[in-house]
């Protein structure tokens, strides 16, 4: 029963936010793309008149073993973060979905972790991870779980895991809240009906919660990917990507190239590379929701 004017309004609703994003982020993205195919120095940074180097910056990157290490780290960082943040987030959300005194308040308290400035989170975790005076080793040694200090942030084999753990701690509450909102929107009748049909807790989770939560889970996975792809400040504060780039990831690497080593072309190429990766993730996301619509 839709009039033409109504349809026009709908399209206007759609164009407003999308247009907004294109207007404000479009230029910065193009700016980066252009720099990634140029030889940019501080001297020519203020002009657009810079030597064109084609894919030179990209070729140089791919030949660089440090870049390959950073890509590998990023893949691990993002994958583990997304999977575990969602798993923990879902577990916590479901637990506090139970009705017991204080449940909602406690659930809200989790968000404190997500509210701290990354600088503060980085410092706190760095202290806790410190091998000699850090709390984590102290506890592990007190309860006899380890007999010598573990070098969380200075052993290149461990540091990535340590950084991932801190980032999961930071990101999970946000994911948990989004999932809670999704769970709250599942009609209670469905659970009651399932119970009447004799479904146990696990079956109800499998056949009611998960299917009803699918759209939310997809959205959350997509967001979590985007956010961990651009994670930056926390890692910087915690390990500066070291030792020897063992915990370095794409955005931090790109920042270091541009702003610490004045290799602006290389920095932009790294950013554009991440952009392409996220573009693929976004396409997958949209494909999946189209399937979901078709169902």
């Amino acid at each position: 029963m839709q009039t033409r004017r109504d349809a026009a309004i709908l399209w206007l609703f759609l164009i407003l936010p999308v247009g907004y994003m294109v207007a404000f982020v479009g230029y910065p993205v193009v700016y980066n793309l252009v720099m990634s195919v140029q030889d940019v120095t501080l001297g020519n940074l203020a002009t657009w008149d810079r030597p064109f180097v084609g894919l030179g910056n990209y070729v140089e990157l791919i030949a660089n073993e440090r870049f390959r290490l950073v890509v590998r780290n990023s893949v691990i960082f993002v994958t583990v973060n997304v999977v575990l943040q969602i798993a923990f987030g879902l577990a916590i959300a479901l637990y506090f979905e139970n009705r017991f005194p204080g449940a909602r308040y406690m659930r809200g308290l989790f968000l404190a972790a997500w509210m701290l400035p990354p600088l503060v989170i980085g410092a706190l975790w760095k202290w806790m991870y410190a091998a000699d005076y850090g709390l984590i080793n102290y506890v592990l040694e007190s309860i006899g779980l380890s007999d010598g200090p573990i070098y969380w942030l200075s052993n290149p084999d461990i540091v990535l895991a340590a950084v991932i753990a801190a980032n999961i701690w930071f990101g999970t509450p946000f994911i948990m809240l989004l999932l809670s909102a999704g769970i709250a929107n599942i009609p209670r009748e469905l659970y009651e009906a399932a119970s009447l049909d004799g479904a146990g807790a696990i079956q109800r989770f499998r056949f009611v919660t998960l299917p009803m939560l699918k759209a939310t889970l997809l959205a959350v996975a997509c967001l979590a990917t985007v956010y961990t792809m651009r994670a930056f400040d926390l890692i910087w504060a915690l390990s500066q990507g070291g030792p020897i780039d063992a915990s370095n990831v794409l955005p931090l690497y790109s920042y270091q190239l541009s702003f610490e080593q004045f290799r602006f072309g290389g920095g932009s190429a790294v950013a554009t590379f991440s952009f392409v990766v996220v573009f693929i993730v976004a396409l997958l996301y949209v494909r999946t929701i189209r399937h979901e619509k078709a169902m």
């Binding site: 936010p17 999308v18 994003m21 294109v22 980066n32 985007v226 651009r230 920042y255 950013a271």
Partner: peptide
């Protein structure tokens, strides 16, 4: 468009 446009780290 919207998802992709928010992936660049702000620093850049």
């Amino acid at each position: 468009t919207v998802v992709v446009l928010q992936t660049f780290p702000e620093a850049l």
